[in-house]
C-alpha cells in the first residue's frame, strides 16, 4: 500500500511540494544547469570540429594548388622551355664560357 502511495506521489508530483524536498531544489537546479552547460559545450565542440575540418580542407586545397603551381613553374623553368620562349626574339644559349671578373672591394 505504502509502495503504491509513493509511486502515486511521484506520478502526482507530490514530492515537489514537500518541504524537505524543496531543500534540494538549488542542487537540482545546479545539476540541470550543469547538464545544459555540458550540452552547450558539446555542441560548441562539434561546431569547432566542423570549422577545423573546413579549414583543414581549405589548407589541403591551398597546398595542392601550391604544388600544382610549383609543378607548372618547373615546366616553364626548364632550360629548353626558356630557350623556346626567347628563340623568337633571336636569343639562344651561348656556347662561350663566361669571363669572370673577381672584384674584391
Amino acid at each position: 500500500m505504502s509502495n503504491n502511495r509513493s509511486i502515486l506521489s511521484v506520478l502526482k508530483g507530490d514530492f515537489f511540494t514537500k518541504k524537505e524536498s524543496q531543500n534540494y531544489f538549488p542542487f537540482l537546479f545546479l545539476i540541470i544547469l550543469l547538464l545544459l552547460l555540458n550540452i552547450r559545450i558539446s555542441f560548441n565542440a562539434e561546431s569547432l570540429i566542423r570549422q577545423s575540418f573546413a579549414l583543414e580542407k581549405e589548407i589541403t586545397s591551398l597546398r595542392l594548388t601550391y604544388i600544382n603551381t610549383k609543378s607548372e613553374l618547373m615546366k616553364v623553368y626548364k632550360r629548353s622551355a626558356v630557350e623556346d620562349l626567347v628563340n623568337a626574339q633571336g636569343l639562344s644559349t651561348s656556347n662561350n664560357p663566361p669571363i669572370i671578373i673577381d672584384y674584391n672591394e
Binding site: 644559349t93 651561348s94 656556347n95 662561350n96 664560357p97 669571363i99 669572370i100 671578373i101 673577381d102
Partner: peptide, 17 residues
C-alpha cells in the same frame, strides 16, 4: 660538353689581376 663547359662556372678561373 660545349654547353656544360660554358655553363659550369667552376670550370673557369677569374681573370687573374
Amino acid at each position: 660538353s660545349d654547353k656544360v663547359f660554358a655553363s659550369d662556372i667552376s670550370l673557369h678561373q677569374p681573370i687573374d689581376d
